[in-house]
Simulated scan of single mutants.
Amino acid sequence: MEYLAKFDDAGRRTATVCKGVHYQTDEERQSYLDGGYVPITEEDYHHYVGNRGGGEHGTGYIRDAVTGKPVSAPPAPVVEEAPQEPPIDEERLAAFEATAAQEARLVEQEARIAALEATLKGGEGK
């Protein structure tokens, strides 16, 4: 079976077509070649689709620009570890702090009112 594959600039396979499935005639084959597809062997195809393992770095295989053969893809980029503390929503935090401050002012106001009422009640009998 003949395979035609298309690769991106980094050598990653983006599409594959097969004779007898995707094209029948030489004209149809040529249209794929004109569209950037290149012939690959069945063995190369098995590398690109992962049937021959994940390569040296476990990231699969890419097409070497010089030889046109499968080579191990580079290692996956290092991913920064997620922060251990959840992110802080500054707007929500400010709203909670403002609410707490308002509640503290209300408690103080209630204490003042209670003191004034006690003073007034204590002064009525005199």
Rank of each mutant, 00 (worst) to 15 (best):
K19G: 08
E117V: 03
T67D: 01
F7N: 03
H22W: 08
Q24K: 12
L93Y: 05
G50K: 13
G36T: 09
E85I: 14
G54M: 07
G58D: 03
G60R: 10
A118D: 07
A73Y: 04
Y61L: 07
E117R: 09
A101Y: 14
L116N: 03
H46V: 13
A15L: 00
P86Y: 12
G58E: 04
A15N: 01
A73F: 11
D26L: 12
V71M: 04
A115N: 07
E80C: 05
I88H: 08
E97A: 06
D8H: 00
R105M: 06
G68Q: 01
C18A: 14
T25H: 03
T67Y: 00
C18S: 08
K69C: 10
K121D: 10
T99V: 13
T25Y: 03
E27H: 09
A10K: 08
T16F: 01
A5S: 13
A94K: 06
A101R: 10
N51A: 14
E43R: 14
S72F: 05
V79G: 03
A100Y: 07
A100F: 13
I40T: 05
H57S: 07
Y45H: 06
L116D: 04
R29M: 00
V17R: 05
V79T: 07
Y37I: 12
E90Y: 14
E2V: 08
A118Y: 04
A82G: 02
L33A: 02
V66N: 14
S72P: 07
H57G: 09
E43G: 15
P87Q: 10
V66T: 09
A98W: 02
V78G: 03
I88T: 07
E2L: 13
Y37K: 04
R63F: 04
Y32F: 01
I113M: 00
N51F: 13
